[in-house]
Design a protein around this nucleic acid. Structure first.
Lengths: 251, 251
DNA sequence: AAACAAACTTGATACAATTTGGAATAAGAT
DNA sequence: ATCTTATTCCAAATTGTATCAAGTTTGTTT
């Protein structure tokens, strides 16, 4: 097997399980632990993965989405700014699709006064307004993907295909000049369904995601209406994105 | 097992139980107490955990907002007995539909060791196992009905129609000699879908529900396989129900 | 297109560093 | 005072690093 392929498998596997031992990975890609070690040294260079004793795990910035707890969210300050800026863009009484991810979760928190109708595939967002009779929350359904507290799979896709929204508030794992990427195939599939069924597409991503690759391609920029990020984002890339007709908001 | 993984398990466990003894934790992660002690020293550094004599505890009282609160559940003692009795009826590795309601939630809690595949319309059940990679949880989707943390409506009905299960663990608002009733039309509709798609139907209801009317009729007794209730239930009615070919378990 | 050498990958191994479990000893609780 | 729990230290086990020989790929030359 080729190096590149192997590393992709390892990364995908880690994206699933968050942590794996060397032997586990070696067996999975049918290579020696030495080779896996070297692969991990390479992958560590991308910043997405971190080596540990006896194995490797996803770097914090990736797993940040796991628990939306102030203590564990990185770049929380930037994300709050992004969330505030994004919330300003959203009028009252709208039908909203709300994706999963910590940044998007912060946006959800800002929507309380706007009497939105929310459809979400994120368990945390559902919990946020579950006890609030003022805000109607619809859950997409789907298989819970533990690391991200998100629901994916056929039920989720089907739900978003049947519903429609004025605005979709989305998150992603990375953004390049080509478009937006995310870390898991099933998530991407469900996000594509959201994009198809919503009129206006807003992506919220902090600057660490801008310029970063992720595992699977989600959509090109011409499907995105607004990108909300923070000032620290790479300026050249932001310019490139603006040229592709995306309204970029810098919080 | 690796350090990282172990510490994560320990932290997760503490999140659940608030406090645990060293030996308890050592057994749980299959390591020596020395190792656990060292792990705890590490974890203490994060501030989320505090070491004590003989064990460790969470620093913050954990938020258990979306779980039915032990203090607010009426007849909690009876419900726990019912839950234990019900869990005994359920073999391992089954596909389960799990309904909403506090009694059923207690049952869900007892299922951890049985590697179930869970489909639920209850937000609390979803939260319960959302972070547990060992247990696959599928959420039905639907509109959140705030008072009961349950999902109802077309999405929920559709989900249960598409899936099927070995066992459905159900709750209800009341039971008479005619059958089972519940308090909301949309819930009843979704529960009917669950019953249609599951092989074995188990209802769990404490004695206060037995003999009580509710708003909307759900199903006659011949659709019910097992009723789990507690000893305090009205004996005449229990006899009547048994005559209708229902296996009644008195916890 | 074939032959060849340089550059790179791979798996294995010896040795260094870390982690682990347990025993001896100190500190704390009842 | 006695029992439990914490610390400290050490030997054993596990894991990491550096290195090397064998095998592959790549590029160049013929």
């Amino acid at each position: 097997m080729q190096q590149e392929q192997r590393q992709k498998i390892i990364e995908a596997y880690l994206n699933e399980v968050e942590f794996a031992s060397l032997e586990d990975m070696a067996e999975r890609v049918d290579a020696s632990v030495s080779t896996v070690r070297r692969d991990l040294i390479n992958l560590e260079g991308t910043g997405r993965i971190q080596r540990t004793h006896g194995g490797a795990r996803l770097t914090d910035p990736q797993r940040e989405e796991f628990v939306f707890d102030k203590r564990t969210v990185v770049e929380a300050e930037a994300k709050k700014r992004i969330a505030a800026a994004c919330a300003e863009l959203i009028p009252g009484n709208q039908n909203l699709f709300i994706d999963s991810g910590s940044t998007v979760f912060f946006v959800a928190k800002e929507l309380e006064g706007k009497s939105p109708h929310i459809v979400t595939n994120c368990l945390s967002v559902a919990n946020l307004y579950a006890s609030n009779p003022e805000i109607e929350v619809v859950v997409s359904g789907g298989v819970i993907y533990p690391r991200l507290q998100t629901m994916v799979g056929p039920l989720a896709v089907q739900a978003f295909e049947q519903l429609s929204a004025d605005i979709a508030i989305m998150g992603g794992g990375g953004a390049t000049s080509d478009g937006i990427m995310n870390s898991h195939l099933l998530m991407v599939e469900q996000q594509k369904a959201m994009i198809r069924s919503a009129q206006t597409i807003i992506f919220c991503m902090d600057h660490t995601k801008i310029g970063r690759q992720s595992f699977s391609f989600l959509c090109p920029w011409d499907e995105v209406d607004i990108l909300v990020t923070n000032k620290e984002a790479d300026k050249d890339l932001v310019r490139t994105i603006k040229k592709q007709n995306v309204n970029v908001v810098l919080a």
